[in-house]
């Protein structure tokens, strides 16, 4: 069973804030998903290779060539604030 503190940890990793009632609500919902995964785990996969990719492509490359970058004006249209050609963001302590 997922507990509220598990939900709080997951929310923390995803950098989202949840109210107590939301945490409880999501605990139940996520639990349901995990039970579903447990069900899938019952299938015998002993002789199967894990599927990491939905398509069977490999070695997709491009050559080492420089092409023009995006205009800086356009780049900075997404900045919350701009200063000297840079994105200005609230300071975050640590990592």
């Amino acid at each position: 069973m997922l507990e509220k503190k598990d939900i709080e940890r997951i929310a923390d990793l995803a950098s989202i804030k949840l109210s107590d009632s939301e945490a409880e609500k999501f605990a139940g919902q996520l639990d349901g998903i995990l039970q579903y995964v447990d069900k899938i785990k019952e299938v015998d996969t002993e002789d199967l290779k894990p599927t990491l990719y939905p398509v069977s492509l490999e070695n997709i490359f491009r050559e080492d060539e420089v092409r023009p970058s995006l205009d800086r004006e356009k780049v900075l249209t997404n900045a919350p604030e701009e200063k000297d050609g840079q994105f200005r963001v609230p300071r975050i302590m640590g990592e």
């Binding site: 491009r62 060539e65 420089v66 092409r67 970058s69 995006l70 800086r72 780049v75 900075l76 000297d84 050609g85 840079q86 994105f87």
Partner: peptide, 15 residues
Amino acid sequence: NCSTDFGAEPNKHTC
């Protein structure tokens, strides 16, 4: 395909 040149003006090598 953005350039890796060092010392460009900020955010000039982005896409």
